[in-house]
Each structure stands twice: as structure tokens, then as C-alpha cells.
Amino acid sequence: MSQSAPSPQPPQSPQSGPVGGNPYAQQAPAGAPYPPQPGGYAAQPGAFAPPAPPAPGRNNLVLGVLAAVVAAVAAAALYGVIIGATKHEIGYAAVGVGFVIGLAAGKAGGRNPVLPIAAVVLALASVYFGQLVGEAMIGAKDTGLSFSTVFFDHFDVVQKAWKEEADPLTFLFFGIAGFAAFSGTKKAAR
């Protein structure tokens, strides 16, 4: 019996047929820098890619608290300037103080469960010092002394003036700022 030689087949181009003799290998689309991985699929032109997995949750307490402290100092200064310029406490400003602190804590620190509580404490301190800055600005205008002299050299007088002018609305602003800080931290950490 005579054996016949297999008929010669033309060489296959890289765009058609199996790769390197492997019938299961997939071809890379034209212009793709790397071939598809085994077991993967090659995206067809016009097909949608699967959604990317969600980013891993951040959980950095130190960075969150540090960002909240910086925001609290800046917010206290701004809140104090607003009070000193208007000679009134403004509720929206207290909401802004709390929310900015919460936003900074949540964005920088993520979902750490301590951050909302730290943001509330910092918001309360920020509103308090903002009100003291406002009192010192008002006292500086009334006495003709510089702000730094009134605030640093006569801090006890500033605190006494704050206590005398504190009313239920003053403490409501503390609550508003604390709530805004807590909710701002939760929303920003999503």
C-alpha cells in the first residue's frame, strides 16, 4: 500500500487561523499591543466592555484627621471673619463649616468609622474658635486695638464676651455644624 503525502497547505496569515498551531488561541485585534490572555475574550468592534470593578475603599484615619484639622482651622478663620464683619452669627456659615470639615475628612480618610466622630468634634471646636475670632474682631473695632492684641493678650475678655452674648441660637449653630460634619463625612466617603 502506498502512502500519500498530505497536500501542502498555504501558510496562514497572522490575522486568520490559529496562533502557532494552537486552535484555542485567540487573535489580537489589529493594532492591539498584546494578545488576549488565555481564557479571556477579545472585544469585538462595537461591543461594550464589562464595567470596571469599584475602587477599593480607603481607610486612612491619620490622613482623614489631618485633612479635617486643616479644614477646621481655615473654616474657623473664615467663620470668624464673617461674624466680625457682619456682627452676627450666620447659620449657613455654620453649616458650611461643618460640611467642609466632614468633606475633607471623608475624601481624605475614607470610610474609617472614627472619622465622622472626629469631624464632629473638630466642627464644634471650629465653630467655637470662629465665634471667638468674631468677638475679637468686634472688640478690636470697638477699642481701637489690633486684633492680635485683643485675641492673644486679652483672650479671657474675649471668652467672657462670648459667654455673655451666647444664646440658644449660638448653641443651635453648634448642633448644625456637628450634624453637617457627620453627614458630610459619610457622604464624601462613599
Rank of each mutant, 00 (worst) to 15 (best):
S148N: 13
G64L: 08
I138A: 05
P10D: 07
Y128D: 03
Q131F: 03
P113H: 09
I90K: 08
Q131N: 12
I101V: 14
S16M: 13
L169I: 15
F182Q: 05
I176A: 13
A71F: 06
T143E: 01
A76E: 04
G57R: 15
F155N: 06
A181E: 02
S16L: 15
P35F: 04
S4Q: 14
K107G: 06
P53E: 07
V133N: 02
A49R: 11
V69L: 12
R111C: 04
V150C: 00
G84C: 03
A77T: 14
A5V: 12
S183C: 06
S183D: 09
D156H: 11
P6H: 08
Q26T: 04
P38L: 04
A25L: 05
S16G: 04
E164Y: 05
I90H: 09
L124R: 01
L124V: 15
M1Q: 14
D167N: 15
H88I: 04
A118D: 05
Q26C: 04
A49K: 10
R190M: 12
T143V: 02
Y128M: 06
M1K: 13
A93R: 00
D167Q: 07
A108F: 03
G102A: 11
K186Q: 11
F48T: 14
Y92V: 11
A85L: 13
A25P: 00
H154A: 10
A189D: 08
A67M: 10
A125S: 12
K87M: 09
A47H: 12
S13Y: 15
A42R: 14
E89L: 14
L63T: 12
V62A: 08
A68I: 05
A104K: 02
G91M: 14
F174W: 06
A5T: 12
K187N: 10
Q3D: 09
A94R: 01
G64T: 06
P45M: 12
N112P: 05
V81L: 15
G184A: 10
P11T: 07
V69P: 00
V97Y: 01
A43G: 11
G40H: 08
P56S: 13
K87T: 13
P53R: 08
Y41M: 09
H88A: 13
A104H: 08
E164K: 10
R58M: 09
P10W: 08
Q37S: 11
A71W: 04
I117P: 02
F48M: 10
